[in-house]
């Protein structure tokens, strides 16, 4: 009996030792499915990207546990930010972010979200914005657009995703800079906005290329100007606003962050994981096809980028009166 007992205890301690040894060999490995919170609804740009990342991880067998995407689109990302902040297990909670990562905490201080507490895993790309009109609008250049929109006053309707989001920011900029009074109507997703312009329900939009590409290829939507620093390879004939004499460009971060409280070991693991995703041919291919810019960015470099974005958005939102 005692022998059996000793053998039993011996076996258990041996198992435990092997367990500790293997866990020291690799500092962190996920031991359950990884929650992958998407800050936007199903079918939008962020959603497509998240599901592509999930698929790449699966296809290349990069992780021993799957990524499990959940869409939390409520309140321009507020729902997702709260869910990540209150995550039970920060080491297994990731989030795919957009610029609402900066704007929502600024606009809603009541949420008590400090985005510097999130773990900087990796910025996978920067999405770009262009100004779109319908081909039947008769508008072919940005100068014509300004004349037409000015003449129409608040009868000129611009659609975009959400209130005080990226699209709203660009619309406000155009209104202030060029003395326009375009009306802005918020929708749930960029795809719907592009469809409304294609159906001539809206006059214009500032969709990302990925959202408007189908209608661009069919010729229904015409891009007038790009809000980038250089011309986009996919739209070589579309001038940038900078070329036209205004020093304004605007991008949207497509970054993966870890929930606040993620351990350093877990952060290192996920940084490595998403570096591999970034380097995969599928991701590079997608980046080119959807006209995404920006190099991979992680750690302190990403934190510095966030700081700059926080102060920029604070200035923008103050100017538009969204925050005091």
């Amino acid at each position: 009996m005692t022998f059996m007992k000793q053998l039993f205890i011996g076996l258990i301690s041996a198992t435990l030792m092997i367990g500790t040894m293997s866990s020291t060999a690799i500092a962190f490995e996920p031991d359950k499915p990884i929650e992958f919170i998407i800050m936007a609804g199903k079918g939008g740009g962020a959603d497509k990207m998240a599901r592509l990342m999930q698929a790449i991880v699966e296809k290349e067998n990069l992780s021993n546990r799957p990524l499990f995407p959940t869409n939390k689109s409520g309140g321009s990302g507020a729902e997702a930010l709260i869910a990540a902040k209150n995550a039970n297990d920060p080491d297994h909670t990731l989030m795919v972010t957009l610029n609402s990562f900066f704007t929502t905490p600024l606009r809603q201080p009541g949420l008590r979200i400090d985005n510097s507490t999130f773990a900087p895993i990796g910025r996978m790309a920067e999405d770009t914005f262009l100004l779109w009109v319908h081909k039947d609008s008769g508008v072919t250049t940005f100068a014509e657009y300004l004349t037409k929109a000015k003449a129409d006053g608040n009868k000129w309707v611009m659609g975009g995703t959400g209130r005080a989001g990226e699209d709203n920011i660009i619309t406000n900029f155009l209104n202030n800079e060029f003395g326009l009074s375009m009306k802005y109507i918020p929708y749930q997703g960029g795809g719907e906005v592009a469809k409304q312009v294609a159906g001539k329900q809206l006059n214009s939009s500032v969709n990302n290329p990925s959202e408007a590409l189908g209608f661009y290829e069919s010729g229904d939507l015409v891009p007038l100007v790009a809000f980038t620093d250089e011309r986009l390879p996919l739209f070589p004939n579309v001038p940038t606003l900078k070329e036209l004499g205004n020093d304004f460009s605007y991008f949207m971060q497509r970054a993966v962050v870890g929930a606040p409280g993620m351990s350093d070991d877990a952060l290192a693991y996920y940084t490595d994981l998403f570096t591999k995703v970034y380097q995969s041919s599928d991701w590079q291919d997608y980046k080119n096809k959807q006209s995404l810019m920006g190099e991979f960015m992680t750690g302190d470099e990403l934190r510095i980028y966030w700081d700059a974005q926080n102060s920029r958005h604070s200035v923008i939102l103050k100017a538009s009166g969204d925050i005091k």
């Binding site: 199903k42 079918g43 497509k48 599901r51 795809g191 592009a194 990925s210 590409l213 290829e217």
Partner: peptide
């Protein structure tokens, strides 16, 4: 149109983009 008419088609749409197709007119 490249616009999902239901939550399920939203996921299918994401799939089509990932497989390298461009839904649209």
């Amino acid at each position: 149109l490249g616009i999902p008419g239901s939550p399920t088609t939203a996921v299918l749409l994401a799939g089509m983009v990932i497989w390298g197709l461009q839904p649209g007119p």
